Simulated assay, not measured.
Amino acid sequence: MVTSRDVAHAAHVSQATVSRVLNGNTRVAPEARERVLRALDELGYVPNASAKAMRTARAGAVGIVASEMLNPYFPRLLDALTREARERDLTVLLWNDDDPAAPMAQAGVKSGAVDAVIFAAAKQETTGVDQLASRGVPVMLVNRADPGNPVDQVTSDHEGSGYAAAAYFLDRGRDDLATVFGPRDTFASPARERGFRRCLAERGVEVATRRWFVGTTSYEHGWASATALLESGTLPSAVFCSADLIAFGVISALRRGGVRVPEDVWVMGNDGLPMSEWDPFDLTTHRQPIEEIAKQGMDRLVARMAGEHGEPRRIMIPTELIVRGSTAHA
C-alpha cells in the first residue's frame, strides 16, 4: 500500500505538505503542490480509511493508555503503534496510567485533544474502556483479549503460548517443572498460566504449589523465585517464565548459585525481547507479533474513526516459539 510517506519521499517534501495537498489546503507553494500531485499520480496513491478519518475527526490524534513502562515489552509495542499512527498522518498522545478509570484519557477526549483511544495498559480492570465506548468514542484494546468488552481487540495468543510452552517441555521428557508467572490482575500472564495449566491437566502432570510462583513482571521476581528453588535443595528440570524479563532474573540467580543453564535446568521465557538473543541469556522464548498487532490495531481504529459501524472484531495472532540455548538441543 502506498502511504503519504512514500509520496513525500518521491516529491521531496514533508508529510505535512502532502497532507495539506490532500486536504485542499491552499497554503502550499505551487511548485511543491505540483510535485506532490505528480507523485500521487505516478505512485497510484489511493486515500484509505485513515484519510477519511482525518477529514472527519476533530483533532486528527489518538491517545494511548499504557502502564508497566519498565517492562521492555511495552516501549517496543508503543514504538510500533506510534510508527503506524505516523504512517496514517495521525498524531499520538501517550498516558502512562494504570488507574482503572483512565482519567487522563477521559480528559483528553473531553477536551477534544484526541478522537480515539488505544488501551495498551497491562491491567485487567479498566472501567474507562466501558465509559468511553458507551459515549461512542472509538476504542481499541491492543494485546488484550476481553470477551466482555464490546470494542475492537487485537492480541497475540497468550494462552496458546502457555500451552505450547508446557507441551515443549513434556514432549522432551521435562516433567519436573517450576513456573514463574507475573501478576494475576493483568491480561497476558493469567492467560499464559491458563494455557500452561490446561496442557498439564491433559497430560496428567502436576506442579507442586511451592514451585508455582506468582509476582511482578520483573527481573527481581525471577531472581527471588530462582533463589527460593535453590534454597529448597531440589531443583526442577525446567522453568517456564511468563515473561522474558522474569526469565533473565531466573537464569542469573541459577548461575550465581552454581547451576548450569541448560545442562542442569532448562529455562524458557515469553515475549521475544531483543535481549533474549544476547549471549548471557540465549533464551528460548515465544516471540509476540508486535508489528502485526500494531498494524491491525491501527487499521481497525482508523476505520472506526472514519465512521465504520458493525460488530466489534476480536483478532488473535499466534506467537512464534524461538528455540535457543537455554533449553538445549536447539
Results as ranks from 00 to 15, higher is better:
Ala102Met: 15
Gly269Leu: 03
Lys110Glu: 15
Ser237Val: 00
Ser252Asn: 11
Gly272Phe: 09
Thr127Tyr: 04
Ala80Pro: 01
Leu177Thr: 08
Ala101Pro: 02
Thr327Gly: 00
His221Val: 02
Pro72Asn: 09
Ala122Thr: 15
Ala107Gly: 08
Gly63Met: 08
Leu230Val: 13
Arg33Ser: 10
Val109His: 05
Gln153Cys: 15
Arg35Leu: 01
Val18Glu: 06
Leu321Glu: 01
Leu170Asp: 01
Gly233Met: 07
Asn96Ile: 13
Ser161Ile: 12
Gly233Ser: 10
Leu78Trp: 13
Thr82Glu: 13
Thr179Ala: 12
Leu283Asn: 09
Ser156Tyr: 03
Arg324His: 05
Ala303Gly: 11
Ser276Asp: 05
Arg5Ser: 09
Glu202Arg: 13
Val109Cys: 02
Ala330Glu: 06
Glu320Val: 04
Met69Lys: 00
Ile293Ala: 01
Lys295Arg: 15
Ser14Phe: 01
Asn23Gly: 07
Val137Phe: 12
Leu78Phe: 13
Gly24Val: 12
Gly249Met: 12
Thr3Ser: 15
Thr17Glu: 01
Asp130Lys: 07
Leu22Arg: 06
Val13Asn: 04
Phe169Gln: 08
Asn149Met: 14
Gly258Arg: 06
Arg313Val: 14
Val205His: 12
Thr127Arg: 11
Arg304Ser: 06
His221Arg: 13
Trp278Leu: 13
Glu84Met: 03
Leu90His: 09
Ala191Cys: 01
Pro103Ile: 10
Asn71Cys: 06
Leu229Gln: 01
Leu94His: 05
Asp98Met: 00
Phe187Asp: 03
Asp146Gly: 07
Glu291Leu: 07
Tyr73Phe: 15
Ala107Asn: 11
Leu77Tyr: 08
Thr91Phe: 10
Asp115Leu: 09
Pro318Glu: 04
Met104Glu: 13
Glu320Lys: 12
Trp212Glu: 10
Ala39Lys: 11
Pro236Phe: 07
Arg135Pro: 02
Ala167Thr: 05
Pro190Ser: 03
Val259Pro: 09
Ser225Asp: 02
Leu273Cys: 07
Leu170His: 00
Trp95Arg: 03
Leu235Glu: 08
His329Ala: 12
Thr234His: 14
Ile317Asn: 04
Arg255Pro: 04
Gly160Met: 02
Leu245Met: 06
Lys295Asn: 06
Asp130Met: 02
Asp98Ile: 01
Ser276Leu: 11
Val207Tyr: 12
Ser4Val: 15
Lys295Trp: 05
Asp244Ala: 08
Ala120Trp: 05
Val92His: 13
Asp152Arg: 11
Ala178Asp: 05
Glu193Asp: 02
His309Ala: 14
His158Val: 05
Arg27Ala: 14
Ala39Pro: 09
Ala243Pro: 01
Val151Trp: 10
Pro280Cys: 14
Thr155Ala: 15
Asn270Glu: 04
Gly195Phe: 02
Ala59Lys: 07
Ala226Asp: 04
Ala59Asn: 07
Val114Asp: 08
Gly136Ile: 08
Asn96Tyr: 04
Ile251Thr: 10
Pro262Arg: 08
Gln288Val: 14
Arg324Thr: 06
Glu34Leu: 03
Ile290Phe: 03
Gln296His: 14
Arg174Val: 06
Phe169Glu: 03
Ala201Lys: 13
Asp279Glu: 15
His329Pro: 00
